[in-house]
C-alpha cells in the first residue's frame, strides 16, 4: 500500500460500466514525512469516504483491489483508497 493525499475529484459520465456510480479521487503520493513525491499520482476508487486534502492509504495493486471491491477475477481496477490516516509517526 502507499501513502498519499487526496488532491481532487474526477467525474466520468461516459465510462466503462464497472465505474458506474464509483467515486474517483486523485491522490498524490507522499513521502513518509508528508512531503509530495514529485508529480506522482493515481486516480483511485474511494470506498472509505475520503475527503479532499486528507492523508490516505492506497491499495495500488489489481488483485488486492479486486478483492476489496468484490470484483474477482475480472474487475478492471488497480487502485483503491482503503483507509484515512489519522497520524503517521516517522523516524
Amino acid at each position: 500500500m502507499k501513502l498519499g493525499r487526496v488532491e481532487g475529484t474526477v467525474v466520468t459520465t461516459i465510462q466503462h460500466p464497472f465505474y458506474e456510480g464509483r467515486k474517483q479521487l486523485l491522490v498524490r503520493f507522499v513521502e513518509p514525512d508528508g512531503s509530495l513525491d514529485g508529480d506522482n499520482y493515481v486516480l483511485a476508487v474511494d470506498v472509505v469516504g475520503a475527503g479532499v486534502g486528507e492523508l490516505v492509504l492506497v491499495q495500488d495493486e489489481g488483485n488486492s483491489s479486486r478483492l476489496i471491491l468484490d470484483a474477482i477475477p475480472n474487475g478492471p481496477v488497480r487502485s483503491v483508497i482503503v483507509g484515512i490516516v489519522d497520524a503517521a509517526f516517522v523516524g
Binding site: 474526477v10 461516459i14 466503462h16 486523485l26 486534502g53 475480472n74
Partner: peptide
C-alpha cells in the same frame, strides 16, 4: 492487466485502454 480486463470477456492483447471521458475535474 487492467487494460486487458476492460475488454473482458474478449481477451485483447493491449497494454493501455481508455476507461472513461472526464466530464469534471477539480483540484486543491
Amino acid at each position: 492487466r487492467e487494460a486487458a480486463l476492460l475488454h473482458h470477456p474478449r481477451f485483447i492483447p493491449v497494454d493501455h485502454a481508455i476507461v472513461g471521458i472526464v466530464s469534471q475535474h477539480a483540484l486543491i
